[in-house]
Amino acid sequence: MNLLRTAREMLEGTSYTLGIAGRTALALPQLWRRRRETTEQCYAASVKLIHVIVLVGAFAGMILSLQTGLALADFGQEGSIGSIVAAAMVREMGPFITAVILAAAVGSALAAELGTMKVSDEITALEVMSIDPVPFLVLPRVVALTIACPLLAIVANVVGIYGGSIVAESLLRVDPLAYRETVYDVLARPAELFPFPKDIYAGLFKATVYGFLIAVIGCSHGLRASNGALGVGEAARTAVRNSIILVLVMNFILTRVMYT
């Protein structure tokens, strides 16, 4: 019985979230009216998080470089560290760590913010005034995060590759010029469809999807919050959990579609 109820709640939650996503898309023509709020949200989601992204991105690149470098050194192949670090960062690590940081720092905040508004009757007040919360609250936040996520992923990619080069040079004695060349080699590989490096746009496309998912999930959990402060905490927790799970699932699907 319990399992049945959980399944029903999951189904209800999913259909509510899909509804929010659809209504957000339909509200897109109103974006110009919400430009101020969207810019503010974008600033809060990107500029205020950049130091975290730089720190985490750099260490991700350094760890990648060290681990693969040590393994490659056994075969005398450490010269190709650059290509591995660059491909891993740009395809996977950059977008993914950005998504995890955004889910934890911004997705939770969105759920808590809208959840607090819900439990203190602010959302109902908007509805009574005939102000639709989706264009008013959800649209600016979703657009902001959909823009911020790929921008932050670029930062994570750049510092990650640079961090990798520092480790390669200082600990593994790899010539920085050779590292840079292998990085360019990998990244310059164009796609079949566009005359544009595939790894870069595929990674950034992933990041854009992650940003959208995290914002929609955060907002929809916030709007469904009930039961006072406890409910707000619950909304924030489940929003982070569900968005990280969904980012992983989506990551696999997108990789499968774009790389095979």
């Binding site: 607090t116 508004m117 203190s120 009757d121 602010e122 009574v128 005939s130």
Partner: peptide, 16 residues
């Protein structure tokens, strides 16, 4: 119809 109605919530429900 709602545009003809004003509702004062218990805690005000101002957008914070």
């Amino acid at each position: 119809l709602r545009s003809r109605i004003g509702l004062l919530f218990q805690d005000g429900a101002l957008i914070n």
